[in-house]
Design a protein around this nucleic acid. Sequence first.
DNA 1: CGGAGTTTGTGACCGCGAGAACAAACTCGC
DNA 2: GCGAGTTTGTTCTCGCGGTCACAAACTCCG
Lengths: 244, 244
Amino acid sequence: MTARSTNTGEGSGAHDPHRDIPEATVARLPVYLRALTSLAERSIASCSSEELATAAGVNSAKLRKDLSYLGSYGTRGVGYDVDYLSYQIAREIGVTHDWPVIIVGIGNLGQALANFSGFSSRGFRTVALLDAATQMQGQEVAGLEVRPFADLARIVAAEQVSIGVISVPATAAQDVADAIVAAGITSILNFAPAVLSVPPGVDVRKVDLSIELQILAYHESRKAAESAEAAATVDNGSGEGITA
Amino acid sequence: MTARSTNTGEGSGAHDPHRDIPEATVARLPVYLRALTSLAERSIASCSSEELATAAGVNSAKLRKDLSYLGSYGTRGVGYDVDYLSYQIAREIGVTHDWPVIIVGIGNLGQALANFSGFSSRGFRTVALLDAATQMQGQEVAGLEVRPFADLARIVAAEQVSIGVISVPATAAQDVADAIVAAGITSILNFAPAVLSVPPGVDVRKVDLSIELQILAYHESRKAAESAEAAATVDNGSGEGITA
DNA sequence: CGGAGTTTGTGACCGCGAGAACAAACTCGC
DNA sequence: GCGAGTTTGTTCTCGCGGTCACAAACTCCG
């Protein structure tokens, strides 16, 4: 908004320093970052867009276009410097510093999330586990003590938490969402199979395991129907004399 | 293919019996199904597209368009019959019968998935848990004994399993994928942060927890930058908005 | 120093999907 | 039976996103 023409200060070679990155591109940047990390671990210092694209499982043209939104961080005729590009992507995403995260709902899934190493290794630090059930409180999970839900506001304020993970049953999800938004959370990762309504300015991303399976089931059904139909078509020639 | 005009037998009013449903619609059908189930539990027998749309968290026009791909299952001036529509969607997705599922990798996440009630309640039946680690084998998780990886082919064949869940570390994911595809699995839900390459005809859906968090982090960064900018514009002279 | 080869960055095009608006069809009341 | 009101199903339009293709720019080698 509000076309500020005063972009003189920023010395980087970016287009207009981080403005207007398409949502689809944002969703792929972490994939690129992971692919780059994997290359770096194999001591590969530089790579072409083609190599990086196959490592990330996307089209090379798409990758180049995505990266061009961040700026011109490649060298024509050469490729991309792995470390430099990694840093630029990390900076754009905002994972150069750690993000404190709270997890609400320490059931099976919540415990698995708390123990999940992929969170902490990617710039996310779980600062608190909360659960309403008194028998969970005080127990230690993944090196953290489970706290009562009443501590929510204090923890969020003290640790400057802006990201919360909801892994409670669907019936409690909306109440939890309301509470953590009131406490100051502005981004929610929701594992509960429920539609959350939140005030504007709060982002919600939903991960729904059973929906993913149902989508797979749909495609499986079609595969089965298709192969059955193909079989019928083949049979049709040998068994039946007349085609409609 | 092969325009079979003999759709006389089927009494339903579907367009052309299940052909060409857009992928975006397929991804929303499970959401509608869940919303309908929720309505049914509250003994609501019929609903308008507007009501169902808000329950599912989508636009009502989009919902009507989505449902129109399945056929004309509503009544103009009245709305949709909850039970009837539920059945039609379930039939389209293919969850009128149960799907056997195997879970490979019984770590923290795998155990949480095995215990997840949302799977079994939505037409999915976990028939086997597999793990390569010998110390896991024989242990009981969610009422199922953890089996060695060598049993894979026999179980898949015996139970006619076509859907597999991968919850192993990233380094092992591709090997596991190759193995379960070889055993006959044609749909994979992958929780490992790795790009899987599978032969054509095999569907893969990926759920990546740390990517979801990184997407949230990106938006948080922008929010922070934006509010800092707004503060700078308003204050402009008073002082500092945020400490670096 | 110049040409050949290579790789990035971007412009053009196309198709899917979202949303608004409207016609078709059903119910209710008289 | 018929008009008014309501709700579905569909058409139209617009914008985002994916892909192709090519110009710009860099390196290497003679």
